[in-house]
Simulated assay, not measured.
Amino acid sequence: MIHFLTTCRFGKWWGCIPLLLVSFFLSAQSSTRPEQVRIRYAKGFSVRYAGTYKIVHILSPFGKSTDTARYLLIPRGKPRPKGFAGYEVVETPVRSLVAMSSMHIGLLGFLGAEDVLTGLGNLKYVSSPKVIARIEAGKVKEVGKDQTLNEELVVAMHPDLVMAVGTPNARLDRYETLRRAGIPVLVNSEWVETTPLARAEWVKLVAVLLNRETLVNQQFAKVEAEYNRLAALTRAVKTRPGVITGTAYKDSWFVPNGDSYMARFFKDAGASYPWAHTRSTGSLPLNFETVFPVGLKADVWLNVGLTDADTKKGVLGKDPRYAEFKAFKSGRMYNYSKRTNSRGSNDYWESGAVSPHRVLADLIRILHPELLPTHELYYYQQVK
């Protein structure tokens, strides 16, 4: 820039006008960039800026046709602009939020915005000390359980926004009562993203709602850089231990599909995953007989189960055949339950969603301890 101005000073001044305009435009763009988010990984939502307004599209990945929810984010007190028919209006910054899943707490915690939360689908499964304190102070109400919603209570609370969980059977018209009451509903389907960074990037959506773009850009950049650094450590590993994940529940054994974010975790951690070839997101239901031969050979058993599977005795209590698994015999069994509190709530499902670098570091330490010899497991612990 200094060189450019020096050149203009001794040249014809009118020849500098186009360059000055370009320079001014680039400078303006640079100065506003920290206040906007750029979505690089997530496929389930998009954000566009139009002056003081923000345009958000949420894409439902369920069903044969894509169901798109459209939102117009307007600065509080500003009039609704023309030309956005069919868009649901959300005033920003959002001051009160009802979340139907405790997993959404991690999104708020990443931004230091727990004080925005005024309602939860279930108060039991909470790990965040800040949110627990708000619950105990009566500042967060329970608005439903098991995906049910007390609509009368929510209407009486009249939050600025309700964040629901995206599921195959949760269509947008399910929340028509709330919409008629002037309460916008945003469906969060982060769990069907195909990579851990894409899943974590949903925190940018929350930042857009709270006008905290600058903060989220700074924070997410650190997570992104660390995750990519860790993933690079395993690219040249000579051996990839075979892994099995989960346990059977009733008649089904659900394993991550090959296009799920969990399968990507296994790949980036340097594992060999038996169902990496399946082309779908979410979970793949299998029967015990299909998974059992894989368990006999798998080197490491990950995500063994809930708190009742934190000991080998507890695992055998579910099914004595688990004793035949190679990982059971060697002791290479690990569960993501280290950060479980006295309420039975697990921080893996809260902060873990926005801290994929910590999850990946744990997995690399388990699968390739020589690559991270000093790392202390954060979410995972060995089943003994």
Rank of each mutant, 00 (worst) to 15 (best):
F288W: 13
S30Q: 12
E136F: 03
T234S: 12
R212S: 05
E88N: 11
K329G: 08
T68W: 04
F292K: 01
L377W: 13
V185H: 02
I244C: 03
Y125G: 08
S60W: 10
H368Q: 05
A309K: 14
K222Y: 14
A69K: 12
R38P: 02
D362S: 01
T281D: 10
K297F: 09
T32C: 12
G109C: 07
F25P: 02
E35L: 15
N257W: 01
V192W: 02
R95M: 09
F62W: 15
F292W: 01
V294F: 13
D268H: 01
T245M: 02
N287P: 01
M333D: 00
S260H: 02
E35H: 14
T148N: 14
M103N: 12
L306A: 07
A99M: 06
E289Q: 13
F220T: 13
S252W: 02
V208K: 12
P373D: 07
D251W: 06
N346Q: 09
Y125K: 07
F325A: 11
N303C: 09
V162W: 07
V162S: 09
I366R: 05
W14T: 13
E226P: 04
N217T: 05
S65R: 00
K64D: 11
M100V: 11
I39G: 11
P256L: 08
R199E: 06
R358Q: 15
T340V: 13
W191M: 10
S342R: 00
I39D: 05
G121Q: 00
H104S: 02
L59F: 15
G77I: 12
K250A: 14
M262Q: 04
R358N: 10
M262L: 00
W301I: 05
L209G: 00
D308Q: 10
